[in-house]
Design a protein around this nucleic acid. Structure first.
Lengths: 245, 245
DNA sequence: GTCGAACTTTGACGACTTGTCAATTTTTGA
DNA sequence: TCAAAAATTGACAAGTCGTCAAAGTTCGAC
């Protein structure tokens, strides 16, 4: 049946259009100001039609989150695929994470919102599964780098901790730091000036503590960082400078 | 003026009553179902009176968060004041944090919500300052334990990282882990079964990595953990077992 | 082409929110 | 005792979300 597939394509295209409008509105009116009526008006469809695509507002936000997860996966894949040592690639992933958050602060805030259980449970089954699989993809990218380090002999995991568990803890650290950083708590007053730098130094020490080779006394990770800034993610950083909204 | 002080006391008492009702409602109808009308009805005052105490809904939630921060400070103080080594006391604080989150999941969720910049910026100046100072108190409790470790010679900080920065990173790790744990993401499927245990083991390794003495090969921190469970926080753990709501 | 069935789109509507404010009640101090 | 000040009230305006009968459109069989 040809018509069915054409319809499906049309539906998918409109879904993208709606999400585009929602994303734009998010930037214009913020999370609070984003209403289904406004999305409908921006997309030039009636509210009923919007609700045919998304079961509820949370579902629409989940759609946005799903896109963001895919963007994040792109960045992580690039970082993980660099021709560097596993530890350098992990550094690259951490850098990419910070970059993503700075490039898409509103989308990151939305992802945080969707990690609240009460919001997530309202999303549709389909979207929830899709988000889960996207998240799993992102996580697996990181896990693979750690596995590479183990199989290369660069990292010997302490007994009683698995690759997955280590990745979870690293994720928790970076996610927690980003969440706290975006919370408006005045950490500078408390003695923590630049959160990104602090986190990077701390992670260096943590990975050295795990004796992940080459340790930072044997290798210049600051040079890797510069390489990432000046070459690998140069375009993204420029986008940040030109549009510091 | 005697009347003025009596009035102030009455106002403070009613504020507590309102917060009590809000906290109870939070448990009964959840975060979504909590409306100012319901709070007003539960407190047996009109909505207008509620709004005389709190500028907006967010402000009411900030009031709840403030109380939670004080509860957390109580727990942290107890942990930090135990007659144990700094590293054991830090373990006790981490344990207390996990305990608090399990004892007050809804309050913790509320604290998370208030870490979203868009929510926080709607709260009243007074409440925001109070929250800041409560948070600072909590943080300082932890920082002092790390300072003790440094001055005792148990811990030598790596160059370029301060006590405050280390505490920030530890907080990020635990906060991030708790946030992710409560997000509904099925980590068990991904290979992370018990998040609390994972985090504890990971922190052991991290602190060992920092060479924080006594390192875990020289000292039985599992025994400290048992001591905390069976004696220090025994009452709280029993409350958890009897009311596993 | 034509036509009826199936599918899509629409926006007015109900049920709920938050926050306001004029009118009413209570308290205060002379 | 009583008028001025302060506190309390709840109807109301403005704005949400999600629904659903009615109007409009597309489809395939003839």
């Amino acid at each position: 049946m040809n018509i069915a597939s054409r319809k499906q394509r049309e539906i998918a295209a409109r879904e993208e259009l709606i999400l585009d409008c929602a994303a734009r509105l998010l930037g214009e009116v913020g999370h609070q100001g984003l209403s289904m009526d406004r999305v409908a008006e921006a997309a030039e469809y009636s509210k009923g039609t919007i609700y045919q695509h998304f079961d509820c507002k949370e579902d629409l936000l989940a759609g946005l989150c799903l896109r963001s997860s895919r963007d994040l996966y792109e960045l992580f894949s690039r970082a993980a695929g660099l021709p560097l040592s596993p530890r350098e690639r992990l550094l690259a992933i951490a850098f990419a994470y910070g970059l993503f958050i700075r490039l898409h602060p509103l989308e990151f805030a939305n992802m945080q919102t969707l990690k609240s259980a009460t919001v997530r449970e309202k999303t549709s089954e389909a979207n929830r599964c899709a988000m889960q699989s996207a998240e799993a993809q992102v996580l697996n990218t990181v896990t693979q780098v750690v596995r590479d380090a183990v199989s290369d002999g660069d990292l010997v995991l302490p007994p009683g901790i698995t690759c997955e568990e280590l990745v979870f803890c690293l994720w928790a650290t970076h996610y927690g730091a980003a969440s706290l950083a975006s919370s408006g708590i005045p950490f500078a007053d408390y003695g923590v000036g630049n959160i990104a730098d602090t986190l990077r130094k701390y992670m260096d020490d943590v990975l050295d503590g795990f004796n992940w080779r080459p340790t930072s006394d044997k290798f210049d990770y600051a040079a890797t960082q510069r390489h990432l800034e000046e070459h690998v993610f140069h375009a993204e950083l420029r986008r940040l400078d030109t549009a510091p909204s």
